[in-house]
Structure formats: structure tokens, C-alpha cells
Design a protein around this nucleic acid. Structure first.
Lengths: 110, 110
DNA sequence: TTACTTTATCGTAATATTGCAATTAACTTT
DNA sequence: AAAGTTAATTGCAATATTACGATAAAGTAA
């Protein structure tokens, strides 16, 4: 009833789902886009870049951090956010593997 | 308010978010896993493969179909579900581009 | 110390998602 | 036609997410 049956699926399935879910909101995609765009990652101005209130942005950043997609270092009284490559590598591998599988069975398929 | 401010983000950001969101549930990851595993895609037995009720599985299939990740053809009184490569290609490109960007600024970063 | 800046957290309201039993719809088999 | 099979839909309850104002926390600057 509204609660995901996490324990019924494999660890890997849950990991992929968690990562994908974190990317599954346009505001969080926009945050990732911005973190990629800026040269340095000393960026205390993510809030100004997004059309959302500060509290909301903070919440989205927290979710990205929880999923392991970004990491934040305290830098004076601002915070330096960065993309964390490790998580993205995991997702990339998933999609690469998926693409390989799909390619293999292309002929047998509708 | 609880409603996502879709109109405040770019089309691409929304597209990526929609695709990622669809993958953001272990049951749907499991469905994709299964569709990849089986040889043919004439598969009316997805329900038996998952630890969820028929109605729930049907709902998850619908979401995957809405996101464009799978496609379903009617095959007698069963339905043949397949992975739709196009959507995955879009996601893969996103991650490939992201990886490239991250690589480029590795040195300047924390 | 006081004022300012920056980010996190709390509380709350609105909306979305997840899951299932029951039912319906559409096709097959007998 | 009657019974059976397969998948979608409906209705509902429980939980999660999204968003924001207000406030707190932690640092910096005057």
C-alpha cells in the first residue's frame, strides 16, 4: 500500500532504481547540468540558477547527495558541490550492458 | 503544493527526468532486466516473474510504455512486450556526454 | 558583539506514487 | 454460446514527493 517492496528485488535492481529516481526530476537534472557547465565547482549560487525557492533547492541537493550523485565540501560559509563520478559510472555501465543485450537480440524481436 | 514545476525547465531536462523517473523503481528495473534476459520478447509471463500482483505489474508496464522505454504488441490474447531502443539511446547519450564533461574538468575539481 | 550571508531543517499543504482486490475487456478454447 | 485466459481499468488506502515560508545553524564581515 504505497510502500515499495524493496526487499523483494535484488540489491543491484534497487541501486539502479535509487540512482535513476534521483535523476527523475527536472530540477535535479538542471542541477546536474549546471554542475557540469560551470568550470570550477565552488558554486554557492545554485539557488539563483533555479526557478525554485531556497528550501526546495536545498532539498533536491540533499537527495542528489543521498543517492551519491554529488558530493559537497564546506568552503568558508558556502558549500562546494561536485558531481561524483562513481555513481554515474555505475549507471553508465548499466546502460552500456543494456545496449549490448538489446543489440544481440535485435533479430529475434518485434 | 507538491506539483513539479515542469514548465520552468527545458524540454531536454524534462525528457531526461521522465525517462529516469520511469526507471526509478526496482519493479520496473526488474521488468527491464527480464525483457533483456528472455530470448524472444513474446512474454505473457512477466507477472509470474515479479513478486507483485497482476494489477500492480500492469501499472508498472503502463508507466514504462508511457515513458517510451518499452513497446507492446498484441499477440493473440497475450501481449508481446519489447524494449524500445530509442529511449535508451537518448539516456545513453546523456550519460556519455556527462562523462565527457566530468572528465574534462577533473583537474579543476575538489 | 552585531549584522550579514549561506545553507539546512521544520512544519505544513497539495499532489503523486505504490499496491491490491475486484471488475471489466478482449480474445481463445471447448 | 459458455467457460477460460490474459491484461487493463477502477476504486481505494497507505505512503512518498514536491514546494515553500519560517526558522535555525554556522560561518564571515563590520
Amino acid at each position: 500500500m504505497g510502500i515499495t517492496k524493496t526487499d523483494q528485488f535484488t540489491l543491484k535492481q534497487n541501486q539502479i532504481a535509487t540512482l535513476a529516481k534521483a535523476i527523475g526530476h527536472p530540477a535535479r537534472v538542471a542541477i546536474l547540468d549546471y554542475l557540469m557547465k560551470v568550470d570550477s565547482c565552488i558554486c554557492g549560487d545554485i539557488v539563483n540558477e533555479l526557478p525554485l525557492a531556497q528550501a526546495t533547492v536545498s532539498q533536491h541537493l540533499k537527495e542528489l547527495k543521498n543517492a551519491g550523485l554529488i558530493k559537497g565540501n564546506i568552503e568558508g560559509n558556502a558549500i562546494c558541490y561536485c558531481i561524483d563520478e562513481k555513481a554515474f559510472t555505475k549507471l553508465q555501465n548499466y546502460f552500456l550492458n543494456l545496449a549490448k543485450q538489446v543489440e544481440k537480440k535485435k533479430s529475434k524481436c518485434c
